[in-house]
Design a protein around this nucleic acid. Structure first.
Length: 941
RNA sequence: GCGGGGGUGCCCGAGCUUGGUCAAAGGGGUCGGGCUUAGGACCCGAUGGCGUAGGCCUGCGUGGGUUCAAGUCCCAUCCCCCGCACCA
């Protein structure tokens, strides 16, 4: 009673230890030998690794192993990203005793109970999970050179980041400016997605504010639809709320008290001490600054005092709320339409309200959305706008008959330029709450530091280079191009979190995606720094200038940094040898940020010959068809998966069953079935050793040998294009099938398998499978006396194979399937076969097809010489179109004796079809059935 | 809205780049058979419709087109998913 994994576990442990002992995965420069440098995006260890983390790394590892077997000196290192806030937040949660999180750590990830309290320390947490990653990734068989590992908060790494930023600054790519962020008003800190309750990303949007003048200060109306200003018939305020007068840039505004509490975080506002209930403002007369019209302030309960200014305008022609409430309050409704939409008549809001008959605010909200969408997408400003503005037609003439989106921009610009209004920012998906429980607001941070990815020169160079890079898969390239286009200034400093202090203002920390764009360069020297205990203080700008750019005199640089000259030269040599990076791997979620920054920063910092060669992006991992998430509690920790299914199986599921671009679905059934196939192959390999027949001669031997050679060619092509799914299919699933076919075929002729061909099969299998399933491949490799480790074994060459035997097998299979399909209708125990030997007809058909001719041409061609039933010709034509090109070519140049082939394989066919007897004869006719080339006439009795 | 991806048989999911090998791979489920005391696991077969002969009909979101031939190419249209930043 052994379970699948027990039988294999000794293999896994054995080879992991052997590889470790022999330092198989360590990489040293070998001047003169071609190199391949591959990295994957380093993980952020705020939990133990799960199977999703494995995909990118296994993809990179497969490539690394493949390149090795192609003779490259391969470097595959990894490090850890500690920068940022989520780890801190999680550690806080542990400290607070967050039940849900502790439950997940304890029961999902199986973290020992005594460890959990210690995770309240963020650094302990990061290091603990880093350890888990290392252990898990080792077990997964990743060929990583662990000596070079580091974390993004190592002081030595920070020294390099500082160098990088000074390079950026030197090119004026670091700029300052204002920047709005989500903000907790109690803690006075920025609030990102990870800091909110239920992980909501705060969306910041912009309201246009229009100043309606009154005798006693301004009513700042906030709107998302400034183009409807012409249709305002009154203002709305909430009569139950407090309104206060505040001073903004020298003028007085009436806004809700709740608005004041929010807006004061984004603009200078002073309380004047004047406050009134909303109800007391009702009835005041205000002037629309754009049209000059006078309108009244009216009260309504739907006005949200917490959104923007708490003062809104009423446009009953285009806002269902406004139309509905005016009617409900018994006011005069005089809608002024300013936008026309074909299907909505004169007054769009009226039509929508009358059609939909909304009964509550929720339904009004729906109606609003619908009208908004219709007007935005299909609406045009009316041409009679001019008459609404008291003679001032400067603005209306610009927008009359224009589509709504364009008019909106024009009106907004007009209002801002003429000083008729301003803008305020608001959390569009509010309310969003900070983890502390307070509702967050928009805060405008002054003097924010940015990396200016919008810089035209920089962008141009980056885009040019992108087109020269290799991008896998093809689909990703378009997305990169789009991202490069819209990329603009990016805030690169934060007020809290782990990371490198910002060099020019040390109260800031360099933001997490900005400190990890050229870190692959650090791998080249990380182990040298570690082994020689070089300190951050010795890693000054001049050192990095020399190591990375070759600038400066090594003698001076080594003195300046108190580093032994030999060491300094070694760092330089190692960098020169490994750089540029050959392949960068990550999930496709990083296209829009990390991977793009990575290209931009290389372009900015390094000379062109050191820019990265290629990018490989992969899809995600689903578990049983669903995205893994804490809330679904369906996360599969890597170590548990490895323990349950074994590392080779996990690897095959992660990279072998879905193409790069799409998500791969990890299922228990799939893993089990792959595991049992691995087991079967291993079993076959062991049994294969016992074969005794030495002489290599039979048709079956030749077939297996040929199909192996053909598979080698196919898999080689697939590996080169990173079609790992295809490669796994051929090198694993198909190879297994071929082996079974061979055994059955050989046994049907009463023979044993041949030693020589079995050896060829397993040697090739071991190497082709080794990038994907290194453990079992290693075992099979050694079983068959392979020298050294399979990772260093040379990838098989493409060799000529025998098309004839492949065609023979194809032909036999097609006869078998014909017999079977007849059996579905007519049972029989004896099959009678006759054959056509009309090679000439067959060749005519192939020729006309090769020439690109259709069926008609073929018939015309044939009719010239002989009279043959058109039906039969059609069948032949179908048979030939289905033939592989190499078979067609073969048949043009060689004889193919169907009778002899079937005669020699009668036993195999009988076995496959269950026939008792198969009679073959040479004539073409068989009681009405006509044989055509490659399709014998078959009669069952 | 803009950008990217996608809609395939009961379900999941390949294929479409290079039209014919596609009634459409591979799973799952279901049905039948084997094994077993039984169940599970495993193995074999079937799984669009029709048909006592390897065939015919219908079919790959919807509508049209190109072609001897279209899941595959072209046009139009509907629907779904992801990204749009300062967050790892």
């Amino acid at each position: 009673m052994t379970n699948d994994i027990d039988e294999f576990s000794s293999i896994y442990g054995k080879w992991e230890a052997e590889w470790e002992k022999n330092r198989v995965h360590n990489a040293e420069p070998e001047p003169g030998r071609k190199k391949f440098f591959v990295t994957a995006a380093f993980p952020y260890p705020n939990s133990p690794p799960h199977i999703g983390h494995g995909r990118t790394y296994v993809t990179a590892d497969v490539l690394a192993r493949y390149k090795r077997s192609r003779g490259y000196n391969v470097l595959f290192p990894m490090g850890f990203h500690f920068t940022g806030t989520p780890i801190i937040t999680m550690a806080d949660d542990i400290a607070k005793g967050d039940k849900e999180l502790i439950d997940i750590f304890e029961n999902l990830y199986k973290i020992p109970k005594d460890v959990i309290p210690k995770l309240a320390d963020p650094l302990y947490m990061a290091n603990y999970f880093k350890g888990e990653f290392e252990r898990g990734f080792r077990k997964l068989g990743l060929s990583i050179d662990w000596r070079r590992e580091f974390t993004s908060i190592n002081p030595e790494f920070s020294a390099m980041v500082v160098w990088q930023f000074s390079k950026l600054k030197g090119k004026n790519f670091i700029v300052t400016g204002e920047h709005p962020v989500g903000w907790c008003p109690i803690h006075n800190t920025p609030v990102g997605m990870h800091d909110t309750k239920s992980d909501v990303e705060p969306e910041i949007g912009e309201f246009t504010v229009i100043f309606f003048q009154s005798e006693d200060g301004v009513f700042p109306v906030a709107t998302l639809r400034p183009e409807t200003i012409f249709g305002a018939t009154n203002l709305w305020i909430n009569p139950k709320e407090d309104y206060i007068k505040v001073e903004v840039d020298g003028s007085n505004w009436w806004i809700s008290r709740k608005a004041f509490q929010r807006l004061s975080f984004q603009m200078n506002m002073k309380e004047t001490g004047v406050a009134l209930k909303g109800a007391e403002l009702v009835g005041r007369e205000v002037m629309n600054p754009v049209t000059g019209n006078k309108v009244k302030v009216i009260g309504a309960s739907f006005v949200d005092p917490k959104t923007a200014t708490g003062v809104v305008m009423s446009v009953p022609a285009h806002a269902p709320f406004d139309y509905y409430y005016l009617l409900k309050e018994g006011k005069n409704v005089n809608p002024i339409p300013v936008i026309e939409v074909n299907s909505l008549g004169e007054i769009p809001a009226k039509k929508i309200v009358e059609d939909k008959k909304p009964k509550n605010d929720e339904q009004l909200e729906e109606a609003t959305k619908e009208l908004y969408r219709l007007e935005f997408n299909t609406g045009k400003m009316r041409k009679d706008l001019g008459k609404l503005v008291n003679g001032n037609t400067e603005l209306t003439s610009m927008i009359a008959e224009q589509p709504v989106p364009k008019a909106r921009d024009v009106v907004k610009k007009f209002i801002l330029e003429k000083g008729l209004g301003t803008k305020v920012l608001e959390i569009m998906n509010r309310p969003v709450y900070c983890r502390c429980g307070n509702e967050i607001v928009v805060h405008v941070v002054k003097d924010q530091w940015f990396i200016d990815y919008g810089n035209a020169e920089w962008k141009k160079t980056a885009k040019e280079y992108l087109s020269a890079m290799q991008i896998f898969p093809q689909e990703a390239r378009k997305e990169f191009e789009a991202v490069f286009d819209w990329l603009d200034r990016r805030a690169c400093a934060r007020t809290r979190g782990l990371g490198t202090p910002f060099p020019w203002d040390r109260k800031w920390i360099i933001e997490s995606l900005s400190d990890s764009t050229i870190y692959m360069a650090f791998y080249c020297v990380a182990h040298i720094i570690k082994e020689n205990e070089i300190r951050a203080s010795q890693l000054s700008q001049s050192l990095w200038d020399y190591v990375f750019l070759g600038i400066g005199d090594p003698v001076k640089v080594s003195e300046e940094n108190k580093i032994d000259r030999q060491l300094l030269e070694r760092m330089r040599d190692e960098f020169v040898y490994w750089y540029p990076l050959d392949s960068r791997h990550s999930g496709k979620d990083l296209i829009a940020n990390h991977l793009s920054f990575f290209v931009f920063n290389h372009v900015a910092v390094f000379p062109r010959e050191l820019w990265p060669k290629s990018i490989v992006v992969n899809g995600f991992i689903l578990y049983e068809g669903k995205k893994m998430s804490k809330s679904l509690r369906n996360i599969v920790p890597l170590e548990q998966a490895i323990k349950k299914y074994g590392p080779d199986t996990v690897r095959l599921v992660l990279v072998g069953v879905a193409d790069l671009w799409s998500d791969a679905n990890f299922t228990d059934d799939l893993a089990k079935s792959i595991n049992s196939k691995l087991k079967k192959i291993y079993q076959s390999a062991k049994e294969g050793l016992d074969t005794n027949r030495k002489r290599y001669c039979t048709l079956q031997d030749k077939w297996l040998s040929s199909i192996v050679k053909k598979t080698v060619k196919k898999v080689s092509d697939e590996m080169e294009t990173l079609d790992f799914r295809g490669a796994v299919n051929d090198a694993f699933f198909m190879m297994e099938r071929y082996y079974d076919e061979y055994l059955e075929w050989v046994r049907s002729v009463g023979q044993e398998p041949n030693q020589e061909v079995i050896r060829e099969f397993f040697e090739n299998l071991a190497i082709m499978l080794s990038p994907f399933a290194p453990y079992i491949s290693e075992e099979i490799w050694h079983l068959y006396g392979g020298q050294g480790f399979v990772i260093n074994a040379k990838w098989p060459e493409n060799k000529e194979y025998d098309v004839n035997v492949l065609l023979i097998k194809y032909y036999i299979d097609s006869v078998i399937s014909d017999i079977q399909s007849i059996m579905e209708i007519k049972k029989g125990k004896t099959a009678k076969l006759t054959f056509s030997d009309n090679m000439k007809l067959l060749r005519t058909c192939i020729n006309s097809l090769e020439k690109g001719g259709g069926f008609k041409e073929f018939v015309r061609e044939v009719v010239k010489e002989e009279r043959i039933d058109v039906k039969a010709l059609q069948r032949l034509y179908d048979v030939v179109t289905q033939l592989e090109p190499e078979f067609r070519k073969f048949l043009l140049e060689n004889e193919f004796n169907e009778y002899n082939i079937i005669r020699d394989n009668l036993e195999f066919i009988k076995r496959r079809t269950g026939m008792d007897k198969i009679e073959i004869s040479e004539g073409t006719n068989l009681t009405g059935k006509v044989a055509i080339p490659l399709r014998p006439a078959i009669l069952l009795e």
